[in-house]
Each structure stands twice: as structure tokens, then as C-alpha cells.
Design a binder for these strands. Structure first.
Lengths: 151, 151
DNA sequence: CTACGTGCAAACGGTTTGCAATTCC
DNA sequence: GGAATTGCAAACCGTTTGCACGTAG
């Protein structure tokens, strides 16, 4: 199967490799969703964001499929699911998993998301875990507020 | 109105003051819920936890009221609402607000919650915010894993 | 007395699922 | 061709809400 999803052919090919590695068939919906996540502006989209944008692009896809595919991608570690509490509504947002761990600053005004990584905090978390006899499997750290240079 | 909720009279009286300060009438459901939060083992309960335990105690209350009261308590800063992602289910948990900021370690096995506070991390967050030109309004930091001394 | 609070059941919003039709390999 | 995937609509689950009744102050 050959699919032209965007002009960035390298990205399409990469997608296919990712899917293959995950043991997932390369289907149109999956490629569309990956492509959308790759091209999205702030790289953090809800299932509905993805669905609406695809529909807007004239694509044919169902919301159920978006959810199913994202769940599979999460299991395959292709994407990471987050639950930002920004706007009170509790919908999950997804970002591509580039393998680099990072935390998030989320704007309460615009929803803008910035990723950051801090060695000092990471180390301190490990020290604290040891102190409390706790084995960290995962962690989430999100700063909510606003960027002072936002329009 | 005089209500005997528990033998710890001081706690009942404190509850009433909290409610009064929040401009909330002292009603039976509210006192029961506060009392349950105060007496709960790990101090982090979902609305349904509270509801079920009260029903189990032979109390008469509706789940809708538990939700409504908890929402009012949150607005009045009597409780804090959290969204732990431990068990995949996304139900909110509530804890009494004792005014001291802290973060959480959550056991994925038992749901046990331990609070901690670390000056180094807090300072580092502030430094990072400055660096990114970001004004922190709130933050959440949760470590998920397991306590090595758990049964 | 009356404004506020409650219970019930129905609605809600995000997400999941059963099933028949379709697609990839 | 046959297993995997999709679309549709219905179910789901935690939470919220409209309304008639009940209760605190």
C-alpha cells in the first residue's frame, strides 16, 4: 500500500516504520492520525482535536477510531497520554513519544504547552523516593499558569 | 442545631466553624462528609468512597449531595481536589485542606497516598518558571509507583 | 418564614464497545 | 481469504443539574 499523506515523505515513511514495529497494520486512519500529531502546532492534542481537524481537512474518519487508535498507540508507546486539568474539563491530550522524558508548563489562558526537563528535580525525586522507600514507576509534574509574553 | 457526629467533639466544633466561615449552613450531610474526611485512613477519598462508607455506616445521604457538597467545599478551600491516574479510572479524590502545600506519592498497588514537601524542588520550579517567563498559578506533581514495605 | 439545601432521576461529556461491513496483507 | 480494522450507534461511568420537597436560621 502506498499512501500520500503529506509532502513530507520522510515523515510518512517514518510513521509506517513506527506502525510496523508496533505490530499494527498500516491503515489510512492510523497514518492520518500520526500525521496530524506530527504536524500539529503545539504537539498536544485531544482525541476530539484530532478528529475535528481531520474532518475539517475533508478526511473521512470516525471519532471512535481516533480513540481506538490513540489507545493502541499509547500501548505501543508511540504516543503519551496526559490529563491536563487546565480548563476544568477532563479530556486527555496526546503527544508523540520521542523517548525523551520531560515535564510540562500549561497556560491556563491559551492552553499553550511547553516542555521542560530539569536534572535537579529529577534527581531530587529519586532521592525522595529512596527516603520514603518508594519505587517510582512513573511521575507527572505539571505547572499551571501563564506565559508572560502571551498575546 | 446541635449534632453529635463523633466522640471527638473538638473536631465537630471545628467543622462547624469551617462551615460557618465559608458561609455554608451547618447541615447534617455536610457535617457527615467533613467527619468522614477527617476520620478516613489515608485522607484521600473519592466522592463514591465517601458515599459508600456513609451508607455502610447506616447514614442516609445521596451521591448527588456528596458531589455537590465536595464542590462547595473545594470552592471554599475546605478541601482540595486531585486527579490521580493510578488505577486508570479518572475519578477525583479529595483531601482536607490543612493549608500546607505538599505533593504526593501514590501506590499503584494499594492506592496508598503519602504526602511530601521538598524545598529544593519547589525552588527549582520557581527558577524554571522565571527562566521560561512563566507565572505559576498552581502545580501538581505526583509520583506513581509502590512502597517497598507494602503488604 | 423563606432562602438555602437535599433527594431523585434524568442529562451530560468524554470515552469505550458490540456488531456487521470493510480493508490490509 | 481471513484476520485485523473500521463505522455506527448504543452503552458506559463519573459527574452535574432541574425540580419538587425538606430544613436551618
Amino acid at each position: 500500500m502506498y499512501i500520500v499523506v503529506s509532502f513530507k515523505d520522510n515523515i510518512v515513511i517514518m510513521s509506517n516504520i513506527e506502525l510496523k514495529n508496533a505490530g499494527l497494520k498500516i491503515t489510512l486512519p492510523r497514518v492520518k492520525i500520526l500525521s496530524k500529531l506530527e504536524s500539529s502546532e503545539n504537539h498536544h492534542m485531544s482525541a476530539e482535536d484530532i478528529y475535528k481537524e481531520l474532518i475539517n481537512d475533508g478526511e473521512v474518519i470516525s471519532l471512535a477510531t481516533v480513540y481506538r487508535v490513540l489507545t493502541q498507540f499509547e500501548a505501543a508507546k508511540i504516543v503519551i497520554r496526559h490529563h491536563f486539568e487546565s480548563d476544568g474539563n477532563s479530556q486527555a491530550v496526546f503527544e508523540l513519544n520521542h523517548g525523551d522524558h520531560h515535564d510540562h508548563m500549561v497556560s491556563l489562558k491559551t492552553g499553550k504547552v511547553v516542555e521542560f526537563y530539569d536534572e535537579i528535580i529529577e534527581n531530587r525525586q529519586k532521592e525522595l523516593a529512596k527516603e520514603y522507600n518508594f519505587k517510582i514507576v512513573d511521575h507527572s509534574m505539571i505547572l499551571y499558569g501563564e506565559f508572560l509574553d502571551e498575546e
